[in-house]
Nucleic acid binder design. Structure first.
Length: 806
DNA sequence: AGCACGCCGACT
DNA sequence: GTCGGCGTGCTC
């Protein structure tokens, strides 16, 4: 018999081991192990988790050198061969370790958890008396305890004397939720004989077994039986002791859907919608991996097109993947999918617990569902027969992962569409410039929806309010007179409104009124944010917290107070202006707990509040018929960020929020307050015209040499010491300058916009290029230098290809 | 990445 | 003489 050898990628993220290692497959596993299986293997002196990426009969090494696989972790492989191929591509595309990609494809529950245990080898009395108390009850104690109690030295001596050994245990994090059920004996005769042996005095027991005889081999929940037979659990237990039934453990799927939804039917499509849908269906039928850019104004019914395309896909026996930006923010969206496709839908988003995510993943893996609606990582849904991939709000930056593997879900979707020969739909009211430019060049196929789907619903009227004028007239509040008046009218008419405060960075900080000192984070060069709920100052970047100081840390003055306008402050101001208004606030503070999004939105939907006040998170997907006013308190904040996409982001945001108003029969009105009303992003958001904005912004990008005209790569270098950071950032820039061609421009190094983060000084280099075939290879060379030399000096280097922001 | 191995200086 | 510091190199 030939030997079977598995190539395994081990769970160690390091450059020298970022390649497959050969292992012998033990005979008993030969029928079970497949490509994509998770295994445990010995690796050097330890035991680690790994993924089988191929199986072969020979090896370049001597067979004697190979170690056998210790354990097969799953009967069914967790990764499809598609995922293994995709991982190799993504690894190269994003310059990261293969193991990073493989991990990103799976729910975190399937990742390994390594735990060290100290195992006692002798009698407790033989141990040093310091260690004895730990081993009185058990022979295995978690290593961490000794670390915490600072007994490592004692432990070391005990190890030397062979009193204890260290055991490394690879654990699986995923805990499958189980319920205990009662399974009734599968033989009627056995039950009969049990029945006859029960004493006549035990009436309840007799009754119970009698009942069981009518339910041979069936499974019940204990409570069901007790209710049915009307007996106590003591009776059930004694009958089970006699062997009439046994407890079994059954896996359950945690139900992530909070409430039942009514089944809904298709909506009639407008001519525009039908035309767009037809093209998508054509591509599905012809099996063309075409990417469609569905550009439709807010309220034009993009979702209905998705739903009907999916319906077609399911009828064809295929599966569908739908990506939405951070889905927990849009419960209304998931509800629409669930109400149309019911139990065939799995939902994946960051609001779920590790266990819940794992359950949803298993539904996909086991083929129990046909549709997945999820955030970025759902693009890796392990379907094997994908018929369509849909990315809603295609322009959202959340589709790009910020840390390794720095993949873009759009790229992965397009890759998978080629693999499955199926179409992709990118949907947006305000497509990213990259995508729209590709559509113009016919790389993507453009589908346009110009009209709102619900007849009579018109685009809201948008008014720009120049806040400089307000200031001149002595109004120093957050609310312009026009907006105050509009709110008053709505309150009288009992209509609802949404007030939008641009981004959370615009929150309160604490400043000394005497010397102007703003309290900063100890670890980062960033102002601390004031959180009223617990009277603390918090760093949004590293999580650092401190009490609000009573005196200025610089000049000891006690004229120190908080400034700025977080949502909390706006809420107070509303309360002053309109004491009768019922306000719901939605921001990071009020949505910390699970399900609070849904709760707030439900309350608002039920008309329990007049005003919904919030940050980014309310911009998307809200669809309430009674909203007739949208107020943007300050449109400028995102405009002046040091990022080439700031105008694009502002335009997108304003268009999004404006779209919340007047979606149904009532007409909507939008007020945008700004200090720069003449900026094109704001002017064009007012008229809600995407194409003129696109043309104008493309011109700016062309002038400045930014995407889509150029590609970008961002190199970040950090070190605890400023000089080291800047020195090595310079070395990196020099290396790139001498190894890349002349038409690549390398900007920097410059200090990053947050120049110190978690006590590390940060420098960055921006690379702009059009075509540079050896770009990735040059980066890989640079990373090699970094890994072999710089890393020892404490330098950290990262490369982000096509960064979402700079 | 982790971990063992090994070579050198400071101690019971 | 031995303990323990960290530089070096390997992991099928």
């Amino acid at each position: 018999m030939t030997v079977k050898i598995a190539e395994v990628i081990v769970d160690v993220a390091a450059y020298p081991v970022d390649r497959p290692f050969d292992y012998l497959i033990p005979v008993e596993m030969q029928e079970l192990i497949e490509c994509g299986s998770r295994v445990r293997v010995p690796f050097g002196p330890r035991s680690v988790l790994g993924f089988v990426v191929s199986i072969k009969n020979e090896t370049d090494l001597s067979i004697a050198k190979l170690k056998p696989i210790t354990k097969l972790l799953d009967i069914e492989p967790v990764l499809t061969s598609e995922m293994l191929t995709l991982a190799k591509w993504l690894k190269h595309e994003t310059i990261c370790y293969e193991i990073d990609v493989l991990q990103a494809m799976l729910p975190s529950a399937l990742r390994a958890k390594y735990e060290k245990f100290v195992s006692l080898q002798v009698n407790v009395e033989q141990l040093s008396f310091l260690l004895q108390p730990y081993f009185t009850k058990t022979k295995k104690v978690n290593y961490k305890i000794f670390e915490k109690d600072q007994l490592l030295h004692e432990l070391k001596i005990a190890i030397k004397q062979n009193q204890v050994v260290i055991e490394n245990v690879v654990k699986q994090q995923g805990n499958i939720k189980e319920v205990r059920k009662v399974k009734i004996n599968d033989s009627r005769e056995a039950l009969q004989s049990i029945y006859e042996n029960i004493s006549n005095r035990a009436k309840k027991q007799k009754l119970l077994v009698e009942w069981m005889m009518n339910h041979v081999d069936e499974v019940f929940e204990p409570k069901e039986i007790l209710d049915e037979v009307n007996c106590s659990d003591a009776v059930l237990h004694s009958v089970m002791e006699l062997g009439a039934a046994e407890f079994i453990h059954e896996e359950v799927f945690r139900d992530v859907f909070t409430k039942d939804v009514k089944k809904t039917d298709f909506l009639d499509l407008t001519e525009e919608q039908a035309g767009a849908l037809k093209q998508v269906i054509n591509a599905m039928e012809q099996k063309v991996p075409e990417t469609f850019l569905l550009h439709g104004i807010t309220g034009s019914g993009k979702t209905e097109i998705y739903l009907q395309a999916i319906e077609h896909c399911l009828n064809d026996g295929k599966e569908a993947i739908v990506l939405v930006p951070e889905i927990s923010l849009t419960p209304q969206m998931t509800e629409r999918f669930r109400s149309r496709f019911g139990e065939q839908v799995a939902v994946m988003h960051s609001g779920l617990s590790v266990g819940e995510k794992y359950d949803e993943w298993r539904k996909i893996h086991e083929g129990r569902v046909k549709v997945v609606v999820g955030a970025r990582s759902a693009v890796f849904a392990p379907f094997e027969n994908v018929g369509i991939l849909i990315i809603d709000e295609e322009h959202e930056s959340t589709y790009k992962q910020e840390d390794t593997p720095r993949y873009h879900a759009r790229d992965v979707a397009v890759w998978r569409s080629k693999y499955h020969q199926c179409p992709v739909i990118l949907g947006s009211a305000t497509p990213s410039l990259e995508s729209f430019a590709r559509a113009k060049k016919n790389v993507y196929k453009l589908l346009t929806l110009k009209n709102r789907a619900v007849s009579h619903s018109l685009l809201p009227e948008v008014q720009i309010v120049d806040m400089r004028e307000e200031l001149k007239n002595g109004n120093r509040s957050m609310f312009s007179e026009k907006l105050v008046e509009a709110i008053r009218v709505r309150l009288e008419k009992k209509e609802q409104m949404v007030l939008f405060l641009n981004r959370r960075g615009y929150s309160s900080f604490v400043m000394c009124r005497d010397c102007g000192t703003v309290v900063q984070c100890e670890n980062c060069d960033i102002s601390l944010t004031y959180h009223r709920s617990n009277e603390k100052l918090k760093c949004h970047y590293c999580g650092f917290e401190q009490w609000v100081p009573t005196t200025c840390p610089e000049c000891q003055s006690d004229h120190i107070r908080y400034f700025g306008t977080g949502t909390q402050k706006v809420e107070e101001e509303i309360a002053k202006l309109f004491p009768e208004a019922r306000v719901l606030r939605m921001d990071v503070d009020t949505t910390k707990t699970k399900g609070s999004h849904e709760q707030i939105l439900e309350m608002f939907g039920d008309g329990k509040a007049d005003i919904l006040l919030g940050t980014q998170m309310i911009a998307k997907g809200l669809d309430f018929p009674n909203i007739t006013l949208v107020g943007v308190l300050s449109a400028d904040t995102s405009l002046h960020l040091p990022d080439f996409r700031s105008a694009e982001k502002t335009f997108q945001l304003l268009t999004q929020v404006s779209g919340r108003a007047g979606r149904h029969s009532l007409p909507g009105e939008v007020f945008i307050q700004t200090y720069t009303p003449e900026h094109y992003a704001i002017e064009l958001a007012k008229v809600q015209q995407y194409e003129p904005f696109y043309e104008r912004e493309m011109w700016t990008r062309h002038q400045a040499g930014y995407p889509p005209y150029y590609y970008l790569a961002l190199i970040q270098i950090s070190h605890e010491d400023v000089l080291m950071a800047s020195e090595y950032a310079g070395k990196a820039a020099d290396y790139l300058r001498s190894n890349l061609s002349f038409n690549v421009s390398i900007i920097g190094p410059t200090a990053s916009s947050i120049s110190r983060l978690q006590n590390r000084y940060r420098y960055q280099c921006l690379i702009k290029y059009k075509v540079e075939p050896n770009l990735i290879d040059t980066f890989i060379q640079l990373i090699k230098i970094y890994r072999s030399d710089w890393i020892k000096k404490g330098i950290q280097l990262s490369v982000d290809l096509n960064p979402s922001s700079i």
